[in-house]
Structure formats: structure tokens, C-alpha cells
């Protein structure tokens, strides 16, 4: 019994089948996607990255940031809100409709409910429930909207507004999704923390910006040099207890600047057909304008972030 050729052929077939099924078929189906136009304007998505940010991505790769940070938002489901936009003139009709779609409430509560607009009438319902409510609310000059609410731990932590899909990674080369969350997800870090100075401080000494962080410091991306008569414009503004000795200053290298440019470029998630998200995106309210360090932007305490859609 000499099975050499049989093994050879069988192995060839098995490997070829798996290669076809898991590599070739997806490659043929979605391996050549194009930029798409998103929204009413002419926004092309995804946008190409600037040269500096692209160099920063190299720093990100070289230092293996993706061994602790993922770049991918998960979503466990979707819910809908029915929001009253304008109550119109037929108040009585609207109140009885409100009583119908929210069975537990009294007429007084219903009256209060429609006093102020926009007001969510129903929150976190399924599509059929939302559609049924829409039918009930079909009263002339009552305006309402059905708003999509992606749900899931990642979304509620404010790491993104929707699930990540292939379109988001069109130009990523290499693609570094990461598979450990030793640190937070970075898909939208550029929107959560818009201040370059804060990012630099965080890279220089993470424990300074976030007490108890386990992120290693990246001092080697910074230079310690003798300060001139006036401090350099890009020298780090270190708090007193972390300051270096007098006459010296900490200046970020080109690599640190590029890395921060890359992090800041991670700020967009647009609504796509395959990954819809609320039309009015939730404001990434943190650190948006401030120049000082905001620990919450890095640690992402749930309370500090989104009003959880519940």
C-alpha cells in the first residue's frame, strides 16, 4: 500500500479548496472596492491620508501599537428611536396616537410628552415596532423621524458610531486591525482627542495623562535638549511634578509628530449603506476644543462619553 500519490493529491485538493473558499472567493467578491460618495455632498470615502499621517502609520507599525490597540468597532445590533419633530396643530389626535404607541402612560403624561420638540417618543425599539408607531403617527402636519441607533459595548463606549466594514480600510496597507484590547480601540481616537499636544504628552508619559495606565512610555520618540533663551514652540508643556531639570526641554521628534498626525487622522466614520449610522452623528464632545489634557478622552469612561442610547 503506497499512498504517497494519494496523500499528495488529497492534500493538494484540500488546501486548494480552502484557499479558494476563504481567499479567492472573497477576493473576487469584494477585493476590488472603490471609493464611494457619501451623503448629499460629494464627500469621497475613505479619504486618502496625508503624507505626514502616512509616515506616522509607519511609526505605528514599527512600534507594534496594534499588539495592544484594535482598530475595529463591533456592533451587536441596531435599535430605533421614534422622535417627534413637530407636533403640528392636531394636538388631540397626536395625544391619542401617543397613548396608542405608549400604552402605559396617562393622558397627562402624553400631553407633557408632546409639549417640547424634538422629543423621542419611543426609544430602542425594533424596526417593526417603529413602523407600527409611524403608521399611528401618520397625522397631517405631525412630523416625526425614525432614527437608527447602533448598539453594542464598543459603540456605547464611544469608540465609534457603527460597525467597521471593509470600505473603511480600503487604503490600509498594511492593515493592522489588532486582536488584543490591552488599550482602547483607536478607530476614532482622532475625534475623541483632537488636541495634538495631549497626544504628545500621552505618548511621552501615559501615566501622567491617565493615572494607572499600563501603556509604556515612548520617550525614545522625544528628545531632551538644552532649552534656548526662549522655549521651543513645540516643546512639551510638562506639569510641574513631571518637569525636567531647569534649562532643558522635551521636544517631540519628527516620528512623534507623524504618529500624532496619524492618530488625529483616525476620526471619520461615515454612514454607508452596509453600515448605516444615525444621520446626525453623535458629537464627539470630549477634548474637542480644549488644549489641556483630558484623561477621559483616553480612558473613555462611559459616563463621560455618550448618553447611552437606552
Amino acid at each position: 500500500m503506497n499512498h504517497g500519490p494519494l496523500i499528495f493529491l488529497g492534500i493538494f485538493l484540500a488546501l486548494a479548496a480552502s484557499w479558494y473558499g476563504t481567499v479567492v472567493a472573497p477576493l473576487l467578491q469584494f477585493g476590488h472596492q472603490q471609493q464611494v460618495t457619501v451623503g448629499a455632498g460629494s464627500t469621497r470615502y475613505p479619504a486618502a491620508r496625508s503624507g505626514q499621517a502616512q509616515r506616522g502609520k509607519d511609526v505605528y507599525r514599527a512600534n507594534g501599537c496594534f499588539y495592544c490597540h484594535t482598530s475595529q468597532v463591533r456592533q451587536s445590533g441596531v435599535k430605533f428611536d421614534v422622535v417627534l419633530v413637530s407636533a403640528g396643530t392636531n394636538k388631540a389626535g397626536l395625544i391619542s396616537a401617543a397613548l396608542l404607541i405608549k400604552p402605559g402612560i396617562t393622558a397627562d403624561e402624553a400631553r407633557k410628552l408632546i409639549e417640547q420638540t424634538p422629543k423621542p417618543l419611543l426609544q430602542g425599539v425594533t424596526r417593526p415596532e417603529a413602523d407600527a408607531a409611524a403608521k399611528t403617527l401618520a397625522i397631517p402636519d405631525v412630523k416625526f423621524e425614525i432614527i437608527l441607533v447602533p448598539v453594542g459595548g464598543d459603540v456605547e463606549r464611544g469608540w465609534g458610531s457603527r460597525v467597521s466594514v471593509a470600505q473603511d480600510y480600503l487604503y490600509e496597507q498594511p492593515l493592522m486591525l489588532g486582536n488584543q484590547r490591552i488599550g482602547p480601540d483607536l478607530t476614532t481616537i482622532g475625534a475623541r482627542q483632537r488636541s495634538a499636544a495631549s497626544h504628545l504628552l500621552h505618548l511621552y508619559n501615559p501615566q501622567m495623562t491617565v493615572k494607572g495606565s499600563t501603556m509604556p512610555p515612548y520617550r525614545f520618540l522625544f528628545e531632551k535638549r538644552k532649552a534656548g533663551p526662549r522655549p521651543s514652540p513645540d516643546a512639551l508643556q510638562l506639569p510641574a511634578e513631571y518637569a525636567v531639570e531647569k534649562g532643558f526641554e522635551i521636544v517631540p521628534t519628527e516620528k512623534a509628530q507623524a504618529l500624532v498626525a496619524y492618530l488625529l487622522s483616525l476620526d471619520t466614520q461615515l454612514a454607508l449603506f452596509e453600515a448605516p449610522m444615525p444621520t446626525a452623528p453623535k458629537q464627539p464632545e470630549l477634548g474637542a476644543s480644549t488644549n489641556q489634557t483630558s484623561a477621559a478622552a483616553f480612558t473613555n469612561t462611559a459616563a463621560a462619553n455618550q448618553p447611552a442610547p437606552k
Partner: peptide, 19 residues
């Protein structure tokens, strides 16, 4: 279908979720 991602079960659901 290449347009169906994790939380959705079918293209129909994706359509329904789209505004």
C-alpha cells in the same frame, strides 16, 4: 452578500436600517 455585516442578517435588514 458582500453588503451584509455582522449585526444584520440579510440585505433586507440592512435596507430597513438605512434611513
Amino acid at each position: 452578500d458582500p453588503q451584509v455585516y455582522e449585526p444584520y442578517a440579510s440585505v433586507k435588514q440592512v435596507k430597513a436600517a438605512n434611513p
